Amino acid sequence: MGFKLLSKLLVYLTASIMAIASPLAFSVDSSGEYPTVSEIPVGEVRLYQIADGVWSHIATQSFDGAVYPSNGLIVRDGDELLLIDTAWGAKNTAALLAEIEKQIGLPVTRAVSTHFHDDRVGGVDVLRAAGVATYASPSTRRLAEVEGNEIPTHSLEGLSSSGDAVRFGPVELFYPGAAHSTDNLIVYVPSASVLYGGCAIYELSRTSAGNVADADLAEWPTSIERIQQHYPEAQFVIPGHGLPGGLDLLKHTTNVVKAHTNRSVVE
């Protein structure tokens, strides 16, 4: 069995187990497998329904001669939608809004960016022009300005110390501490036991640490421990890039980060 097929099978099995364990909360999309990078042309966006009122959005972007996937989250909030992270750029984010209108038909009224990198804030200006209120932590807003990236308009308070959590509509926002970046936030959907790890969490097929220019490698494993301790009931975990899975993604990420750190020390 090929690795790609095995990865998709694991996603399907995880979703099936969740649907059985929580039949009222989960209505997993039966329309197909989780979209992969090879299936999404740059400039297009796919939506994948995880649970009743919960979707991931998947886009792709060219970077350094390669094409990478990027995940975000959409959560229903009454007759409105909360968006977590842009679709990595203005063109993708405009396509995301169009796809949401086509498939869901509810307005996106608020959006949260989970850290300051372009795959999370690139497209904020498109959201703002569409009347979406954009939010991020003060740290993310400051770092985005320093980096020359787009800056969300509103500040999220109460997320300055490791372990801080605040309720934001249908989700809980959690600051686990520094990891992929010093400002990275985690998003949890309690009604569906869905954990969105953003770039602080890796997919299972990833074996290298990737972009760690703004990471705190020493603190990252401790931050992941905080996530595990705060959300032990999480059933569906979405990484910032690639295929979702279960809580095993947290341990896998820790292993990859520690291996990278150990290699760096040896070198």
Rank of each mutant, 00 (worst) to 15 (best):
M1F: 02
K4V: 06
S7Y: 15
K8I: 11
L9K: 14
V11P: 15
Y12A: 13
Y12I: 12
L13W: 11
L13V: 15
L13Q: 11
T14L: 10
T14N: 08
S16D: 09
I17F: 10
I17P: 04
M18F: 13
L24H: 14
A25G: 14
F26M: 15
V28A: 13
S30E: 13
S31Q: 08
Y34M: 10
T36W: 14
T36V: 14
V37I: 14
V37L: 15
E39S: 12
V42L: 09
E44D: 10
V45N: 04
V45F: 03
L47E: 01
L47C: 02
Q49T: 10
I50W: 07
I50S: 03
G53K: 09
G53Y: 07
V54Y: 01
S56N: 15
I58E: 05
Q61V: 15
F63G: 15
D64I: 08
G65A: 10
V67H: 15
Y68T: 13
G72C: 02
R76A: 10
R76M: 11
R76I: 08
D77R: 03
E80L: 05
L82M: 10
L82W: 05
W88D: 00
G89R: 02
N92S: 06
T93Y: 00
A95Q: 12
L97C: 00
E99H: 14
E99W: 07
E99G: 09
K102R: 13
V108K: 02
T109K: 14
A111C: 08
V112T: 03
V112A: 07
V112S: 02
F116Q: 03
F116R: 04
F116C: 04
F116A: 08
F116G: 04
D119R: 01
V121N: 04
V126C: 03
R128T: 12
A129R: 11
A133G: 09
A133Q: 14
Y135G: 01
S137L: 11
S139H: 12
R141A: 04
R142L: 14
E145T: 11
V146N: 13
I151G: 03
P152K: 00
H154M: 10
L156H: 05
G158H: 11
S161M: 14
S162G: 14
S162D: 10
S162P: 15
G163Q: 06
D164F: 06
R167T: 12
R167E: 12
R167W: 11
P170T: 07
P170F: 04
E172T: 04
E172K: 05
F174L: 09
Y175P: 01
P176D: 00
P176G: 01
G177K: 02
G177L: 02
S181T: 15
T182Q: 11
T182L: 14
D183G: 03
Y188D: 03
A192S: 11
G197I: 02
C199Q: 00
I201M: 07
Y202F: 13
E203C: 04
E203L: 02
G210D: 08
V212E: 07
V212T: 10
A213Y: 08
D214A: 07
A215K: 05
D216E: 08
D216R: 07
A218M: 11
W220Q: 02
W220D: 02
P221Y: 06
P221D: 06
S223I: 01
R226F: 04
R226V: 07
Q228M: 14
Q228S: 15
Q229Y: 11
Q229M: 14
P232E: 07
E233M: 11
A234E: 02
Q235D: 12
F236E: 07
F236R: 10
V237S: 01
P239W: 00
G240Q: 02
H241A: 00
L247A: 14
D248C: 06
L249M: 07
L250M: 07
K251C: 07
H252S: 03
T253I: 07
T254F: 13
N255T: 11
K258D: 09
K258I: 10
A259H: 09
S264C: 05
V265M: 11
V265Q: 13
V266F: 15
